[in-house]
Design a protein around this nucleic acid. Structure first.
Length: 534
RNA sequence: UCCCUGAUAGCUCAGCUGGUAGAGCAGGCGACUGUUAAUCGCCGGGUCGUUGGUUCGAGUCCAACUCAGGGAGCCA
C-alpha cells in the first residue's frame, strides 16, 4: 500500500539539524591526528580526575558543583526559559558548532528531551577553548554550565552563556561519523541503528512512540480495563495466525529422535513443541471471561517471509477484549481508542508532529486532526462490495463477494467514497478466522476492519464465537481439530458470554501518526527476514 | 515467496549511444562573521556490490550471485 504516498526508493530524507537551528561550517583544526589516537587515553584520565582544563569546582560531578546551587536542566526546560537568569547545567550531545571571530563559539546541544537543541555560547576565554571546544563536532558529548539568558541572536529565545564547557567524549574520526549534519536516507540510517536515535527523526519517533504507549495504557485504565501480560512463549498446538518461531533447547545438529526417526520434542525444554507467540488473543479471552475488560500490549512474533513496508518479524500488538459485548460495541471501542491516542499525540507532541509535517510527510497533522473530529462510518461488507462494483474507478482486482478487500478497495472506500474512517463489518466466513462469531445469515461472521484515510486497514477485530457447537463446527470446516483447543473450548463450556475484541499493530499506529514510509523506522531495532543486526 | 528497479567518494547523487570517473554535503587549511544548513578560496578522498563473459578497450553491454528499495501475496 505504501504509507508515504510520495515514497520512492530514496524518497524519505532527513538530517540531524534541527529546524530552525541550522548547522554551519564547523571546521576544527587538526594539524595531526594524534588527538584522536589518544582519545581513549584522555577519557580515562578525565574519569580519574578533573580535566586539567576544567575550572576548579566546575566538574559536573565534582564536590563543589553541589554547593554552587547549579540546576541541571533538560534542553526542553532550558528552551522554555525555566530558571532564566540563574546558573544552569546542560548535559547532552553536540549537533553543530559555529565559530565567530568575535571570540566565541555557538554549540548547539541536544539531549533528546525535545525536538530543538539549545545554543551554548562558549567564549574564547574558556581555558579549554582552543584545546577542546574548537574540536567539538556532531555527536560529541558535553556538560555545559552557565547562565540561562535571553538570546542576543535570532532563531531562539533562550541560550546558555557558558562559564565552562566540559568535553566528555569527542567523536573519533568525524569524517566517518555516520550521523552527519546533512540529509540521510532512512535506508542508510537503518544500517546504523545504534546511532540513528541521535537524528531528529528518530528522536521524534521515539518520543511519539512513548507518548502513544502511555496514552494507550491511560485510555484503557480510564475505561476500567486491566492489562494482562499474555505469554511470549506458547506451547499451544496451533494458534492459526501465521508461521511461528520455534523455541527449543535441543541440539539443532543432533536432536533426539523417536523410533520413527522424527525429532522427539518430548525431550525438549517444555516437553513439547514450543513457539513464540503470534497473538495473545486466545489467552486474553480467558481473562476477559473473568475480569470483563482486559487488554494485551506486548511483543508478538511472526516468522512470515514477508518483506514489505508494513511487516516486522517482531512487533508490538495491542489486543483489547470485552465481555458482554457485540460487534457494535467493539467498533465503538475502536473508535474511542484511536481518537484518544491521536488526541494525546496532537496535544503532547505537536513539536515532533511539526517536524514530521515539514520533513517527512506533508499533511500528517491535518490527517490526525480530521481523524479525531470525524465520526466513523459503518458499513456492511456486502454494501462495500456493491459500492466498489458501482465505482467508476478501475481496480487492479475486481471486487467480488466472497473475496477479501484489496488495499486499493479499502483506500477507495475510506478516502474517496466516504472521506473519513470507515468500519467494514460482517465479512464472509470463509475469509475470516475460526473464532469469529457466525451471523444469523449463516454465511457471514461478525468481523470488522477499521479503515483509515492514508493507510487502509488499521484495526481488525471481531465478536468471538461463544457457542461451543458453532465454534466446533467452524473449526472442523477450516480443518482444525477441536480437541487441540481444549482450554479455549472450556471457556465456552463454563459460563460463556458474548465477547469481542480487536488487534492493532503498535508500529502501524506509529507509522500513521508520524507519516513514515516504512514500519522498520517505527521500532528501535527492526527484525525482518534476513536482518537482526544490533 | 513472486514481479519491477537499483548498487559509483564518509553521505546524497551525476556519468548520453562502451575509450581507464565528477558535483554537493561532510573532512583538512585559510579568509570572514552574535553565528543559525553562514559565505568565499584552496586541498585530500573512489581497484564504480561480487564473480565470470563479450570487446583492442567495460562504471557503461551480457549472465549468475549478494544486498537494498518499491509493489504483490500474507497479515497487525
Amino acid at each position: 500500500m505504501g504509507f508515504g504516498s510520495s515514497t520512492r526508493r530514496r524518497g524519505l530524507r532527513w538530517d540531524v539539524r534541527a529546524a530552525p537551528w541550522r548547522g554551519s561550517s564547523w571546521a576544527w583544526p587538526r594539524s595531526s591526528s594524534s588527538w584522536s589516537r589518544s582519545f581513549s587515553a584522555r577519557c580515562r584520565r578525565r574519569s580519574k580526575a578533573a580535566s586539567p582544563t576544567s575550572l576548579p569546582g566546575q566538574g559536573a560531578f565534582g564536590k563543589r558543583a553541589r554547593t554552587m546551587s547549579m540546576t541541571v536542566l533538560s534542553v526542553k526546560a532550558a528552551l522554555a526559559g525555566t530558571g532564566a537568569g540563574t546558573k544552569v547545567e546542560i548535559r547532552g550531545w553536540v549537533r553543530t558548532r559555529r565559530d565567530s571571530k568575535a571570540g566565541l563559539s555557538f554549540v548547539n546541544v541536544s539531549d533528546g528531551s525535545c525536538q530543538n537543541p539549545v545554543q551554548i555560547v562558549a567564549p574564547a576565554a574558556l581555558p579549554n577553548y582552543q584545546s577542546e571546544i574548537l574540536k567539538l563536532t556532531a555527536g560529541a558529548s558535553v556538560i555545559a554550565q552557565g547562565t540561562l539568558v535571553q538570546s542576543q541572536g535570532k532563531g531562539q529565545s533562550f541560550e546558555v552563556q557558558a562559564d565552562a564547557v566540559q568535553v566528555l567524549g569527542l567523536v573519533d574520526d568525524p569524517e566517518t561519523y555516520p550521523v552527519q549534519p546533512k540529509q540521510h536516507t532512512m535506508e542508510f540510517l537503518r544500517e546504523v541503528a545504534h546511532l540513528r536515535p541521535r537524528t531528529n527523526t528518530f528522536g521524534a519517533v521515539t518520543r511519539v512512540r512513548h507518548h502513544a504507549a502511555q496514552a494507550i495504557h491511560r485510555f484503557f485504565h480510564e475505561e476500567g480495563f486491566f492489562w494482562v501480560n499474555t505469554p511470549i512463549i506458547t506451547a499451544s498446538d496451533a494458534e492459526g495466525a501465521g508461521q511461528m518461531f520455534r523455541v527449543s533447547t535441543l541440539d539443532a545438529l543432533n536432536p533426539p529422535k523417536t523410533d520413527a526417526g522424527k525429532v522427539d520434542w518430548s525431550k525438549d525444554f517444555f516437553g513439547k513443541e514450543a513457539f513464540l507467540t503470534v497473538s495473545g488473543q486466545l489467552n486474553v479471552e480467558a481473562f476477559c471471561l473473568a475480569l470483563s475488560k482486559v487488554y494485551t500490549f506486548g511483543p508478538t512474533f511472526r516468522a512470515e517471509n514477508s518483506n514489505t513496508t508494513r511487516h516486522l518479524a517482531e512487533f508490538w500488538m495491542i489486543e483489547p477484549e470485552i465481555a458482554f459485548a457485540d460487534l457494535k460495541a467493539d467498533a465503538d471501542l475502536a473508535e474511542r481508542f484511536l481518537k484518544y491516542v491521536f488526541k494525546a499525540i496532537l496535544s503532547e507532541r505537536m513539536d515532533d508532529l511539526e517536524f514530521f509535517e515539514e520533513r517527512v510527510q506533508k499533511g500528517v497533522i491535518e490527517r490526525l486532526s480530521k481523524f479525531v473530529d470525524s465520526s466513523f462510518e459503518r458499513i456492511d461488507y456486502g454494501q462495500a462490495i456493491e459500492i466498489l462494483k458501482g465505482a467508476k474507478k478501475k481496480f487492479d482486482y475486481a471486487p467480488e463477494w466472497g473475496k477479501d478487500l484489496q488495499t486499493e478497495h479499502e483506500r477507495y472506500l475510506t478516502e474517496e467514497h466516504v472521506g473519513r474512517p470507515v468500519v467494514v463489518m460482517n465479512y464472509p466466513e470463509q475469509i475470516k478466522a475460526f473464532y469469529m462469531r457466525m451471523n444469523d445469515d449463516g454465511r457471514t461472521v461478525a468481523a470488522m476492519d477499521v479503515l483509515a484515510p492514508g493507510i487502509g486497514e488499521i484495526i481488525g477485530g471481531s465478536q468471538r464465537e461463544e457457542r461451543l457447537e458453532l465454534l466446533d463446527a467452524r473449526m472442523k470446516k477450516m480443518g482444525l481439530v477441536p480437541e487441540h483447543y481444549g482450554w479455549y473450548r472450556d471457556l465456552r463450556r463454563y459460563g460463556s458470554v458474548p465477547h469481542a475484541g480487536f488487534g492493532l499493530g503498535f508500529e502501524r499506529l506509529i507509522v500513521y501518526m508520524c507519516g513514515l514510509g516504512n514500519i522498520r523506522d517505527a521500532i528501535p531495532y527492526p527484525r525482518v527476514p534476513g536482518w537482526a543486526q544490533f
